[in-house]
Write a protein that binds this DNA or RNA. Structure first.
Ligand SMILES: Nc1nc2c(ncn2[C@H]2C[C@H](O)[C@@H](COP(=O)(O)OP(=O)(O)OP(=O)(O)O)O2)c(=O)[nH]1
Ligand SMILES: [Mn+2]
Ligand SMILES: [Mn+2]
Length: 518
DNA sequence: TCTTTGAGCCAC
DNA sequence: AAACGTGGCTCAAAGA
């Protein structure tokens, strides 16, 4: 932080040294007291086996950082800014829009709903309520004939305000005067302005995050050095910042900003259908296990969601299928994590009643799974605690009312699964580094991202390293009927990495041959 | 001139 | 529609 650095620069050097020394000393002394607490909470295993080695790995990653492709970065940034200039000129040409700040939701609402008098989901009636009823949204979007808009609505959530969820908090949902993309896709059926605004918003986000906005994160060495926050989540997942790398927009455009050091390659491994597999492990559900062993469940749910046949899947462009598969994850995970038919409906593009049928069809595919899911949720709330197989814990000391209880049930249901997949992956990351070094392969850690991990190795050794990573990741540290297959990609640029290894072994392709000799 | 909050959008 | 879960970042606007 610039202001902080400036302030620190003015502090007397001797005072600063004394302060830093005291900081270290007191931290060290605290370990004695805290070790007692950790022991009392039976968390020495989590600390010693996972958190401490992970901390060392994250520090190593932070120090070395990731190289930014400076030419590509500047070129992309310039492109985005030029496009924005053009779009802004168009937007300002609309009557009354000349002096608008397009980044201000407040000003946009006045323009869209008062000046242009555009009608939100549900029309005039919605102005009466504070939030738009889900049924109104479902009905409205079902009647819209705009493929791009339909695609958006099936791939994004409506959820907006957060508040103190469930108790004394702000109501969640879509306000009738909302200016979100979700709303703009509806408004663009009535006027040209919202459509152009959507494009502007997209570019504004890209540039502010990864174009001009990225500059503050690029050090003098031309690299970014993200920090890992190990205590940000209630599940043991990690968070990153400065810059955050857990929420980079998918696709090559942004990922190609990050490249391997010259002469090195990045190797990336991601668990397949990770949390579904772990739910199968915990529940020992036969049908789910069988489904995972024989098909891709995300694709299977995508077929249900979009009404696709086997032929459709076979003939569809690869990228389109990939997008539909991604969209289906929110349904596949949403249902066992407690999403209601009302919540599912807008994303499925159907009424609440029809959404019930989707939910039933989902569970009909997996006999016994619904019972397990509901019991699993209840037990966590009853115990006021959720525990993962790695003995990570989340407590729920207070349950305030029946609605809060439902929230706690969903959180307690999710924790042991999300947490275990994270720790499984984190351990695999740590062990991959160890195994590579044991094999004499130089390696730098790259990011750990929930159920995926990255390392950087010298290019000539890529194949050896891929095999080692695959072996470590699939050699899970617990007994299970389930396998945990991985997909491994490799390349010099983070956004251009062909799959080189998956559940069926080595993947041959022209792309691999061109990129990775040997 | 700061800091905090709200709206919005991105990911696994 | 009393809400699938877990997060971070930017900008505008309000608060100190
Ligand atoms: N509750 C919830 N969890 C999610 C959602 N999206 C992702 N996750 C969790 C569950 C996933 O298994 C995990 C890793 O995300 P991935 O994008 O890698 O998906 P997954 O591993 O399921 O499939 P894949 O890697 O594509 O075979 O993150 C979501 O929308 N809701
Ligand atoms: Mn995965
Ligand atoms: Mn993943």
């Amino acid at each position: 932080d610039k202001a902080f650095a400036k302030a620190i620069a003015q502090v007397d050097k001797y005072d600063l040294f004394m302060y830093n020394g005291a900081d270290v000393d007191y931290t060290y002394r605290l370990t004695r007291d805290l070790a007692e607490e950790v022991k009392a909470e039976d968390q020495l295993g989590v600390l010693g086996r996972i958190e401490m080695p992970a901390a060392r790995m994250f520090m190593e990653f932070h120090m070395h950082g990731m190289l930014i492709d400076g030419d590509y970065w500047r070129s992309m940034s310039a492109d985005w800014q030029q496009e924005m200039v053009d779009l802004e000129e168009e937007l300002r040409s609309y009557p009354g829009a000349r002096d608008l700040n397009f980044g201000s939701p407040k000003q946009l609402a006045v323009y869209l709903f008062d000046k242009l008098k555009l009608l939100p989901f549900g029309g005039k009636a919605s102005f009466k309520g504070k939030k738009i009823d889900e049924g109104v949204i479902s009905k409205a979007i079902a009647e819209v004939d705009d493929p791009e808009a339909r695609e958006y609505w099936t791939s994004k959530r409506t959820q907006m305000s957060e508040g103190l969820k469930g108790f004394g908090g702000v109501a969640k949902g879509l306000s009738p005067r909302s200016t979100t993309a979700y709303m703009l896709y509806f408004l663009r059926q009535q006027h040209d302005f919202p459509g152009t605004l959507l494009k502007w918003k997209h570019l504004q986000k890209r540039d502010s995050m990864y174009g001009s906005g990225m500059a503050k994160y690029v050090w003098k060495d031309g690299r970014v050095h993200p920090s890992y926050n190990m205590t940000a989540t209630r599940t043991g997942r990690k968070a990153t910042n400065d810059p955050a790398i857990h929420n980079l927009p998918r696709g090559d455009e942004i990922y190609n900003l990050f490249i391997a050091d010259p002469g090195w390659v990045i190797i990336h491994g991601d668990y397949s259908q990770a949390e579904m597999r772990f739910m199968a492990h915990l529940s020992k559900n036969k049908a789910l296990t069988h489904l995972l062993n024989t098909t891709d469940i995300h694709t299977r749910i995508a077929m249900e969601m979009f009404g696709l046949s086997e032929e459709d899947v076979a003939n569809m462009p690869k990228d389109e299928l990939k997008d539909k598969r991604i969209a289906s994850k929110m349904i596949t995970f949403g249902i066992p994590y407690g999403r209601s038919p009302a919540g599912l409906a807008p994303q499925l593009g159907v009424s609440k009643e029809e959404a019930v049928h989707y939910q039933d069809a989902y569970y009909a595919l997996l006999p016994g799974f619904r019972e397990w899911v509901e019991n699993h949720r209840r037990m966590g709330a009853d115990n006021h605690m959720a525990v993962s197989i790695f003995n990570r814990r989340r407590r729920f000391p207070l349950i305030l009312d029946k609605y809060h209880r439902r929230e706690v049930e969903r959180q307690a249901g999710n924790m042991p699964i999300q947490s275990a997949i994270n720790d499984l992956t984190l351990l695999a990351h740590i062990n991959t580094l160890i195994a590579l070094r044991d094999a004499g392969i130089p390696v730098f850690p790259w990011p750990h991202i929930h159920d995926s991990l990255n390392v950087m190795v010298p290019k000539p050794l890529w194949k050896l390293a891929v095999k080692i990573m695959a072996d470590v990741m699939t050699d899970i540290p617990f007994e299970s009927d389930l396998e945990f297959p991985v997909e491994i990609e490799c390349g010099e640029r983070w956004g251009a990495m062909p799959t080189v290894y998956d559940n069926d072994g080595w993947v041959e392709s022209e792309e691999v041959a061109a990129l990775l000799p040997g």
